[in-house]
Design a protein around this nucleic acid. Sequence first.
DNA 1: CGCTTGCGGAGCGATACGCTCCGGTCGTAA
DNA 2: TTACGACCGGAGCGTATCGCTCCGCAAGCG
Lengths: 210, 210
Amino acid sequence: MARRAEAERNDRALLEAAREVIAVDGAHTSVASIAARAGVGIGSLYRRYSSKTALFQHLVELALDEWTEIAEQGLADEDPWNGLVHYISTSVRTGSLAPLAGMVTFTDEMTEKNTRSDKAFEALIDRAHRAGVLRRDVTAVDVLLLVEQLSKSPLIEHLQQQGRADMLDAARNAQRRVVAIAVAGLRPGDQPLPGEEPTMDLFTQRWSTS
Amino acid sequence: MARRAEAERNDRALLEAAREVIAVDGAHTSVASIAARAGVGIGSLYRRYSSKTALFQHLVELALDEWTEIAEQGLADEDPWNGLVHYISTSVRTGSLAPLAGMVTFTDEMTEKNTRSDKAFEALIDRAHRAGVLRRDVTAVDVLLLVEQLSKSPLIEHLQQQGRADMLDAARNAQRRVVAIAVAGLRPGDQPLPGEEPTMDLFTQRWSTS
DNA sequence: CGCTTGCGGAGCGATACGCTCCGGTCGTAA
DNA sequence: TTACGACCGGAGCGTATCGCTCCGCAAGCG
């Protein structure tokens, strides 16, 4: 059926559009803007997802698998440093789903996927530590927070909201430079990091059921 | 007059509360939440400022002077590196006003203040470059974008929104570590930064009159 | 004790939202 | 070619929330 294929295309477009719009406008964004960005009607969105929250839930479910995959891609690279950089730069590019925290409820399946993702990522960190390419006082949580911090670019978001497509390339280039600077700070250095090592629940508490 | 003193206290409380709330909720925040955070009524807010936009305008005006002052404080430090770090860490702590971009109109006086601020900051960068403590391919715009990127902490914002004050200290500590990592990336290194050097209008175009 | 000054917040009109529902479109099969 | 039904887009409804106005009240002053 050709209609089926179109429905699947619409679904993928919806998910992609939702990620983009959420990255720019946050979770407060309207379903109308998501549908418009995907090039479909509001009706089609609600035929596939029972509510705005259901769409967000599905987004997070998919992202959990994606993060695991990115970490495993990093592990597939034989160079520990390049593998880590691959994880960071890829995660930054796909954009954060942090604004959705508190709007989705974690199922048992999702927590399981989450621990799988964490395991793969920590293996990536461990390997970099052992190879001596990552400064020893940097923990996995430090890197996760750094990625999250870099995932949201106020400049690019502003340009997209204003429709200034002419400067988008320059902004993305500038963003890549900022990421490169931050990543360079992960190499072994002389100045120790301040404070105590952060705990993982700093990162996970946000997704617990509200 | 005792009433005058109270009004001034209220005004300062309003400005501070507005910065805090904007940093957490963005420019979409309601005047009610600003007034509540300041511990004053909505009426008092509107007696001082004719509209929400007028309050934001005043916020940006004050911030322009503040940024100049921070840069000059950095220049007052005889150590070029410490001076630069002072600018970055202080700017990050006071929080970004980027969400207000597009809501305020730049007066001639404000553009003048803006160039003064830029001048002081670029002097700070120049000095660090000449002293060899800042990698040469890092420009002033790179640092400004880095500061903006670090000014918004999704983790801290989430904890404040959820009222999880118990984890705020740990989150702030983690945030300081992330900033330290990024700042470490500014030291002279081996890997060159990607792409071309960004231009200053990337940063300034956001504040032009809409 | 009356007057002035500044206060807090209830409530109004307007806006923007999530979601429903229906008329129209197009692929499919006889 | 035509009748059918699956699927589409989006107008519009009820509701929540917003910026802002306005007024009753408390506190200092002569």
